[in-house]
Simulated scan of single mutants.
Amino acid sequence: MAQADPADRDRLIVALDVPSVDAAEAMIARLGDSVGFYKIGYQLAYAGGLPLVEKLARAGKKVFVDLKLHDIGNTVARGVESLSSLGATFLTVHAYPQTMKAAVEARGTSGPKILAVTVLTSYDDRDLVDAGYALGVRDLVEARARQAQAIGVDGLVCSPEEAGHLRSLIGPDMTLVTPGIRPAGTAAGDQKRIMTPGKAIAAGASYLVVGRPVMEAADPKQAADAIVAEIAAAK
């Protein structure tokens, strides 16, 4: 397979959802130049993975720290300040107005771009009712997107199903990062709002977060290359 365009390659964010730094580093080595952007979430961060953010950044990789911060404003701000020194490209917070405002103010001009998580891709309308929300997924995502844009958040994390609608709503400047990506023929797992890589890019997604379809593939490098090729073809 021909060498991927770096711009296409970096639109794939591989989720390092593994239990140890050793396992993460082994996968990074296995993927090599096929992947230039990684996500570090709860599992790896709580297993001592935050220093890996700095290591990857020094190696020229981009890192998405997905901790979905949400607390009182002061606590969120201090957390963002601490994480800003690691060199991450993206940092997530939950899309509550006070939380977003605190994160944006604490980030300043040199911190990571703040992404607001609208509604988790494992949720559907019934789940929101069970959680006490009056709005369904589409309406809640739209409301939170408008609030995020007004506050100055850099981008949104949303289902690929919402990407097209949000892109038309918020315009071209905000970043849209979409988990819930499943190449054709792979299992949905615990995701409820999913889409193939090509369709997500065509819908307006800026970046795709892919975990199990790469991490659990027989040949992860080949799986990553195939997704990047689909991204390139969908532009």
Rank of each mutant, 00 (worst) to 15 (best):
residue 112 P to C: 08
residue 84 S to G: 01
residue 160 P to G: 12
residue 123 Y to A: 06
residue 120 L to E: 05
residue 122 S to D: 13
residue 194 I to L: 09
residue 99 T to V: 12
residue 107 R to Y: 09
residue 98 Q to M: 00
residue 127 D to N: 10
residue 128 L to K: 06
residue 122 S to W: 12
residue 150 A to P: 07
residue 164 G to Y: 04
residue 139 D to S: 14
residue 141 V to R: 00
residue 113 K to Q: 14
residue 157 V to W: 07
residue 141 V to T: 00
residue 161 E to Q: 15
residue 206 S to V: 02
residue 175 T to G: 01
residue 188 A to Y: 12
residue 128 L to A: 08
residue 167 R to M: 01
residue 119 V to K: 08
residue 195 M to D: 13
residue 145 A to P: 07
residue 82 S to D: 13
residue 153 V to T: 13
residue 115 L to E: 08
residue 182 R to Q: 06
residue 115 L to N: 08
residue 186 T to Y: 13
residue 142 E to Y: 06
residue 161 E to K: 13
residue 154 D to H: 15
residue 149 Q to C: 02
residue 111 G to L: 04
residue 127 D to W: 11
residue 162 E to L: 02
residue 200 A to M: 12
residue 100 M to K: 07
residue 87 G to R: 05
residue 96 Y to N: 04
residue 201 I to K: 09
residue 138 R to G: 13
residue 163 A to D: 05
residue 109 T to W: 11
residue 195 M to C: 08
residue 129 V to L: 15
residue 199 K to S: 06
residue 100 M to N: 02
residue 153 V to P: 00
residue 200 A to I: 11
residue 82 S to C: 06
residue 188 A to C: 06
residue 144 R to N: 00
residue 139 D to N: 13
residue 106 A to V: 01
residue 152 G to L: 12
residue 85 S to C: 06
residue 165 H to Y: 09
residue 85 S to R: 13
residue 133 Y to V: 04
residue 201 I to D: 04
residue 205 A to Q: 03
residue 175 T to W: 15
residue 157 V to E: 03
residue 193 R to M: 07
residue 129 V to P: 01
residue 197 P to M: 03
residue 160 P to F: 12
residue 192 K to D: 11
residue 98 Q to P: 11
residue 138 R to A: 15
residue 131 A to I: 10
residue 197 P to N: 03
residue 111 G to N: 01
residue 160 P to D: 05
residue 81 E to V: 03
residue 130 D to T: 15
residue 124 D to R: 05
residue 154 D to G: 08
residue 122 S to A: 08
residue 93 V to Q: 00
residue 166 L to T: 03
residue 131 A to H: 11
residue 201 I to A: 13
residue 97 P to M: 00
residue 95 A to R: 09
residue 128 L to D: 07
residue 164 G to N: 11
residue 83 L to R: 05
residue 162 E to G: 00
residue 164 G to T: 10
residue 144 R to H: 02
residue 208 L to D: 06
residue 147 Q to G: 01
residue 133 Y to H: 15
residue 173 D to L: 13
residue 207 Y to W: 10
residue 138 R to L: 12
residue 155 G to P: 02
residue 101 K to P: 05
residue 144 R to S: 03
residue 193 R to Q: 04
residue 130 D to R: 15
residue 146 R to T: 13
residue 89 T to L: 11
residue 111 G to F: 08
residue 150 A to G: 10
residue 111 G to Y: 11
residue 194 I to F: 05
residue 108 G to V: 05
residue 96 Y to K: 03
residue 104 V to H: 00
residue 170 I to S: 15
residue 93 V to A: 00
residue 161 E to R: 14
residue 137 V to Q: 06
residue 154 D to K: 10
residue 120 L to V: 07
residue 135 L to T: 04
residue 186 T to A: 12
residue 154 D to Q: 07
residue 86 L to F: 10
residue 160 P to E: 07
residue 196 T to H: 11
residue 121 T to Y: 01
residue 204 G to M: 07
residue 199 K to Q: 15
residue 114 I to L: 10
residue 170 I to C: 14
residue 177 V to R: 01
residue 153 V to F: 02
residue 201 I to S: 09
residue 200 A to W: 10
residue 142 E to Q: 07
residue 95 A to N: 03
residue 118 T to S: 12
residue 180 G to C: 08
residue 176 L to E: 09
residue 129 V to A: 10
residue 198 G to K: 06
residue 82 S to F: 09
residue 140 L to V: 07
residue 164 G to A: 13
